[in-house]
Amino acid sequence: LYADTALAEKLKRLGAELRFALLTSEASVANLADAPESAVKAEQLPLAVAVVASAHKKCERCWHHREEVGQISEHPDLCQRCVSNIDGAGEERHFA
């Protein structure tokens, strides 16, 4: 996402949970002035969106494409979040 300063501050408050609010594997917020020409601009908000396919493997449990999938020997088909939810204390969310 590319947003003006005020909107970017609000979006960044979600932290890592922004990806859950947007139903995507990963999300980040950058300055609206840095948006590429290919970004789709919102009509009513100071916001532009650029989508890029992930290069990471898909977690078999949550279907998010995460860097750590394939790197956890006990659960090679899962992401760290799912391993924590299965074998650990589980994730803690605050917003989404």
Rank of each mutant, 00 (worst) to 15 (best):
A42H: 09
A53Y: 07
E43K: 10
R66Q: 15
P36V: 10
V49Y: 03
G90W: 09
E68A: 09
R13I: 03
K41C: 05
R61W: 06
P36W: 06
R66H: 13
A53H: 07
E26V: 10
K57Y: 07
V51Q: 09
R61E: 11
N31M: 09
A8V: 00
D4A: 02
W63A: 03
K41F: 05
A33I: 06
W63C: 03
E37G: 13
F20K: 01
K58E: 05
E68K: 10
D87A: 14
R61M: 10
A53I: 09
S54C: 06
K41H: 08
A42R: 00
S54K: 08
R93I: 03
A42M: 01
E9L: 06
A6L: 14
A3C: 07
V29G: 02
E17T: 03
C62I: 09
H56P: 03
R13Q: 08
V51W: 05
D77C: 01
V51H: 06
L7V: 04
Q71M: 15
D87Q: 13
I72S: 01
L1A: 05
A55C: 11
E60H: 13
R13C: 04
V69Y: 04
A16L: 11
E43P: 01
Y2L: 07
T5I: 05
A39E: 05
G70H: 01
C59S: 02
V29C: 00
N31Q: 12
A27P: 00
W63Y: 10
V40F: 11
E91Y: 05
A8M: 04
L22P: 00
P36Q: 10
T24G: 13
R61D: 11
I86D: 10
D77N: 11
C82H: 05
L47T: 02
Q71E: 15
S84E: 14
S54T: 09
R13L: 11
K10W: 08
D34F: 04
Y2I: 08
S28M: 07
D87F: 11
R13V: 06
V83C: 04
L11Y: 01
R66S: 13
S25R: 08
R81F: 12
D34R: 04
D4L: 03
S38F: 05
C82T: 11
